[in-house]
Design a protein around this nucleic acid. Sequence first.
DNA 1: TCAAAAGTGTTGCATCTACACCCATGG
DNA 2: CCATGGGTGTAGATGCAACACTTTTGA
Lengths: 229, 229
Amino acid sequence: MAKERVPNVSVDCVVFGFDEEQLKVLLIEQRPMPGVAQIQYAIPGDLVFKRENLDEAAARILLELTSLKGMFLKQFKAFGDVDRVNKQKDKAWLRSFREKPDARVFTVGYFSLVKIDEYDPRAASFAGRAEWRSIKEIPSLAFDHNLILTEALKHLKSDLELKDLAFELLPDKFTLSQLQRVHEVVLEKELDKRNFRKKLKAIKGIHALEEKQKGVDHKPAMLYRFQKE
Amino acid sequence: MAKERVPNVSVDCVVFGFDEEQLKVLLIEQRPMPGVAQIQYAIPGDLVFKRENLDEAAARILLELTSLKGMFLKQFKAFGDVDRVNKQKDKAWLRSFREKPDARVFTVGYFSLVKIDEYDPRAASFAGRAEWRSIKEIPSLAFDHNLILTEALKHLKSDLELKDLAFELLPDKFTLSQLQRVHEVVLEKELDKRNFRKKLKAIKGIHALEEKQKGVDHKPAMLYRFQKE
DNA sequence: TCAAAAGTGTTGCATCTACACCCATGG
DNA sequence: CCATGGGTGTAGATGCAACACTTTTGA
């Protein structure tokens, strides 16, 4: 596959993770030039290769960033406002990294759900430039990335209710409290423990293991696994 | 606004209408050159202008096509497969109408809901080249437009259930049977009349008028109007 | 008077919500 | 033995599916 890039269409990938407590997003540092102190944060993305489909481009970005394959990945919206890459704050970076810094660039937004404990920052080619940020503490981002993130969250939220997305954010073995916490954080509301567990019984695919949590200073929880289908 | 177009990003607009019986889509004829007999059908669309946002481009296409303003319009998906405009069947048209017939073109799909009785085919600049087709009788379309249509339907279907989209397809004054029929056609399942009406009572915004259907050879139905909010 | 669609309620079943106490573990 | 989160059931309210007959109109 030729590595030549289309000049004006990119894919941005909002990577969500869950760390037992908060919903997090993977942001990358964006310096106007290597070595410069001034930093801005951005959602990872790249121009699409000339012989690459959109879904492939998104998977590639995710792989480069996380060294993870086969994670949940879904297109949610295209962004193409005339001035979306035309703000003062982004000029320096564009001049350093883009052949045509003034080109109008369209981007297709994807969101991905990864198991945060499988993520190894050292393995990625963005090494050292990526960091998890709680969605409650998002700084001002490059381009229209705050908007892209907001839209991604909106889609995640409405998808979570119906589909089995929550498991994509949890480790292979998880407790029911963790599962509940994911729902609470994403949906931004508290849930009743007993009612939540009752609903789970209706979902097939959740299997109790014969194994408990270890090393916690309270009653250890039963571990579960999710098997699709 | 400059009418110059971006070379490789388009917007396609799947226009749905409802004619009392079936869900319809507006297709346009696509002749390789004016006057040529050989016809292919396509979903209306156009390359985006250089100084035009995506939503604006979609509204423009809809306006040119239907002379309607303010209709429901929603982005549902971007399409960018490498070979989506690279099939034999589409070559002739591309050579006639595109400056760079071999360019890879990305497209952003929108769907629109219009009141079919407000649509005046003569008023549109696509005059005489557009026609309503039942979604049950869709021919093989240009490019990847069969896929785009399928995806649009999928999104319409899932949106209809929760939101107030059905009213967008009906005339200003409508009967409850018409409303039910829209749901049945889009969701592809029959609904129980009494249960359907019970659910409607929960939705606010539906107001009975003091007016009945005229000129039908059966008991005339009460007319209703929908007022958002 | 016939055909065709409009209009209207009840019941059983499934689902949702609200709510409080005992249990197992590590420190 | 204390603090911490794990784990469990019931009752009342709400929502959903199934189901049949009478009414009004034009032809």
